[in-house]
Amino acid sequence: MLTLRNIVTKLQIHSKQVTYCTKAIVEQTSPTISKRSYEDENYFYQRPREVWLENIDTVERKKLGLVFLHPDVYAASPRIDIIQENVRWQRMYRFVCYAHTKVRSEVRGGGRKPWPQKGQGRARHSSIRSPLWRGGGVVHGPRSPTTHFYMLPFYTRVAGLTSTLSVKLAQDDLYIISDLEIPSNEPSYVEELIEKRHWGPSVLFVDTDDIMPINITEATDTIKHVNLMPVYGLNVYSMLKHDTLVLTERAARLIEDKILYHLHRPDSHKLMSKFKLNQQ
């Protein structure tokens, strides 16, 4: 049984025969096989992930080729607990709780001793705003503003990214396109495209630069659930919030490069130390 790879390599070799036999894709040039050689490719137990390279020029899906991706990034262990930790961190590190209760000294009144210490036959009290009293101060209540900043360890965050990318790819929610050039700047084009290709209602497009082609920017501007993002903004929360993740080929490669750099850097010892602010 011929595997997909054999078919594609045969296509490359016998391209003339292909153009004769398959008139439907006469205009299409030979498929682009994007394959990289990695330093540790002899030590792969898992096979590199093969993803279709698609187009976005037409509403209809055209396969332009194959992209082979590194398994350590796109086939990593799907650690749901690490994904949850990352999501929680993203939510909490900038969260400020503004809930506030008054302490007995802050509650209005309560400076005078309500009745003398002895002789009344009543319980002894020194202030009407003590926590025992109705209307009195709260003892260990929330004090505004309370920050919940903390830093998740560096490699937990890297693992979060690899886990989420692997989960997206495994669940068929990751697509790779050649570039973000679309023919029209109408939002309807993008909506039609998403509908036709059965991409989830919410889509996240990721490219390397933060300045994207004008058409896609204008088209997705009014649609709230379709968003554009540069690679440096990629995060676990956004990837899970959007149903489908669409990467351009160069974005997929840049993500791969960056994550592999962090997984194989010689000075990782510094990154594994406890996070401190004002650390030089």
Binding site: Y261, H264, R265, P266
Partner: peptide, 8 residues
């Protein structure tokens, strides 16, 4: 300077 890659 430090190298960015661990030498094989």
């Amino acid at each position: 300077l430090k190298s960015k890659v661990i030498p094989a």
